[in-house]
């Protein structure tokens, strides 16, 4: 078998070009597939997308007035019962002996209109008491998205986890998988419901309803891609913590003044 010089060079050239093409694109394609499989949808890095939203909660400022919960229910047509809340506040009372007592309007027996009742921690004054506002952490590695059997819950390119109401089968697996208890079954739509950081507002440049209504500025929202954003400044200069970091969910709600023992 003889191969002409011309044909040999042609084949060699094509092999090299093809090899380089495969070598450069294959890992990207593979990585994209793996990412898509892991998160249900491609996780876009901060570069290349329009927004990198983040949420800061300053526990030291929160007064437990419950305005955030009410604003959220109005803005997002969330059913009135306290159990069905996209955001809520927990009241922590820590005794002299270190015993922790927690109650919550958002999760408790009382309705959304009510305030926290006065409590008497273990019959004595608690040594320390504070409120912890809770909402969806819009995790960068969201377990709720991973477990959805029909890809009804997904992460948008700008990093917000949403639910497709028309696709959700109501298996409640995402409610189990969320380590923050942020999800619930909406009694009207009969599908999984959750905080969206008011996606309909933030995509129009408005802050989430709870942020707008907070009278003490305990909730701060912004875009990390915006150099003027207050969250960018806070995250760079202040000491912040996320909830349950050991689970590797990479939350995007950052807490200032978080106390050890908060779930």
């Amino acid at each position: 078998m003889t191969v002409s010089r011309r044909k040999f060079l042609k084949m060699a050239g094509m092999t090299i070009v093809g090899g380089v093409a495969v070598y450069t694109t294959a890992p990207r394609v593979l990585a994209a597939i793996l990412r898509a499989e892991a998160a249900g949808e491609a996780v876009a890095p901060v570069e290349g997308v329009e927004h990198a939203w983040a949420f800061v909660v300053d526990i030291r400022k929160c007064i437990g007035c419950n305005k955030c919960l009410q604003a959220c229910k109005l803005e997002n047509s969330v059913p009135p019962a306290a159990e069905h809340s996209r955001t809520w506040q927990e009241r922590y009372e820590i005794g002299e002996d270190g015993a922790v007592f927690v109650d919550s309007i958002g999760w408790g027996e009382t309705g959304p209109e009510s305030m926290f009742p006065p409590t008497n921690h273990n019959g004595s004054e608690p040594a320390k008491s504070f409120f912890v506002p809770k909402l969806c952490n819009q995790c960068d590695n969201p377990p709720c998205v991973m477990v959805c059997p029909v890809s009804a819950t997904f992460k948008t390119k700008d990093g917000v986890v949403l639910v497709d109401e028309k696709r959700c089968i109501g298996c409640k697996y995402c409610i189990q998988a969320c380590p923050y208890g942020a999800r619930f079954l909406n009694p009207v739509t009969k599908v999984a419901d959750k905080c969206t950081w008011c996606y309909q507002r933030i995509t129009k440049g408005l802050p989430p309803a709870c942020v707008e209504v907070c009278p003490v500025g305990a909730r701060i929202f912004g875009d990390l891609k915006d150099p003027e954003s207050p969250v960018r400044k806070l995250l760079r200069e202040e000491m912040t913590q996320v909830l349950k970091p050991a689970l590797g969910t990479k939350p995007k709600v950052y807490y200032m003044g978080l106390q050890e023992g908060v779930r």
């Binding site: 998160a39 477990v147 059997p149 029909v150 890809s151 696709r167 959700c168 089968i169 298996c171 009969k190």
Partner: peptide, 19 residues
Amino acid sequence: LERPWRLFVFAALTPNFAS
């Protein structure tokens, strides 16, 4: 399940292999 009939459609149309 809250909406079992959707399972047959979307388990086939939009499966999540991580689930």
